[in-house]
């Protein structure tokens, strides 16, 4: 289990990660979702002790990562598949991890087989690897110590469709055997197919979290009115959670009946009142992405 509590990282005046709290449970795949630059990688770097936090904590099974005696045996980490000495062979990269963790040499071959890198490929230098091969090598490095938790930053980047399918099955099986998986992505659909729980981050803050089923299905009620501000005030005043739904619409975390009663009490005529589509998360994610999207940089 990975727990992040009130984590904040400030660079100068910029809050890259702002009061982030979430838990990645054992036996489940937790998707860490957000547009580029939302703070996913910074959060993950803090989790594994590479970046000191401004405040807050991150623990794995109750202990700080940097307090783990031999972290590779407890947490498998892949932050950037390209961050390898370009002159080493794939096999050598794995051998260094195997030696550092004090594992038997056969683990290297087992891992190469697991991630489908052929003996010939394993003897090539990392600089000659495609991004997909580097990701496979990174996954192998993360798994070689048979850890109980995985922290993977954008592991599907550069994988072909078959590779993405393979990764999905691998992570599913790993979580089903009781492992904790936290993986990040900037693509909702990529993470939707594998994650059990979702944590959505935008501009350093968590904007949504929960089970995938809850987030994608129960999107609450969609209500539309001319006096949308009055309606929002009335709904918020009744203790309901309200989000903008676009073009005079509001999305409310409540049944239609409750929303209708509040609107009547407030004297706001409604134009539309219905159960919202299951696409609340996607809309929110698109909105988030639009805020930070860079023209032509869409992956």
């Amino acid at each position: 289990m990975i727990e992040v509590r009130a984590l904040t990282k400030v660079y100068g005046g910029f809050r890259a990660v702002d009061d982030v709290t979430f838990t990645a449970e054992a036996g489940r795949v937790t998707g860490f979702l957000g547009p580029n630059g939302a703070g996913k990688s910074t959060t993950m770097r803090v989790m594994v002790g590479l970046t000191p936090p401004t405040s807050g904590t991150a623990t794995v099974d109750g202990r700080r990562f940097s307090d783990l005696p031999n972290p590779g045996l407890e947490v498998g980490v892949l932050l950037d598949a390209s961050a390898q000495h370009a002159g080493r062979t794939g096999r050598e990269v794995l051998t260094l991890a195997q030696e550092t963790m004090g594992l038997p040499r056969r683990r290297v071959d087992e891992m190469l087989e697991l991630v489908s890198l052929t003996p010939a490929e394993s003897k090539r230098r990392v600089k000659d690897y495609s991004l997909g091969m580097r990701q496979r090598l990174g996954i192998a490095t993360a798994l070689i110590g048979d850890p109980r938790a995985l922290v993977l930053d954008e592991p599907a980047n550069g994988l072909d469709p078959a590779g993405i399918r393979w990764m999905r099955d691998l992570l599913r099986g790993y979580a089903d055997r009781g492992g904790t998986v936290l993986l990040s992505s900037h693509l909702l659909h990529e993470i939707e197919v594998v994650a059990d729980d979702l944590v959505v981050i935008g501009q350093g803050r968590i904007v949504a979290q929960g089970t995938k089923a809850a987030l994608l299905a129960s999107a609450g009620t969609l209500v539309r009115a001319h006096a949308v501000d009055d309606l929002a005030r009335a709904l918020t005043g009744s203790g309901l959670t309200v989000t903008a739904g676009g073009s005079g619409a509001l999305r409310v975390d409540a049944d239609c009946e409750v929303v209708g009663e509040v609107a009547q009490a407030a004297g706001v005529p409604l134009l539309e009142l219905r159960a919202a589509d299951g696409a609340g998360l996607e809309e929110m994610f698109l909105e988030l992405t639009a805020d930070t999207a860079r023209e032509g940089a869409a992956a």
Partner: peptide, 13 residues
């Protein structure tokens, strides 16, 4: 070579 990303995650001290 940015190898430290791996080195210092395997050995945080």
């Amino acid at each position: 070579q940015r190898n430290g990303l791996t080195t210092f995650t395997l050995v945080p001290s």
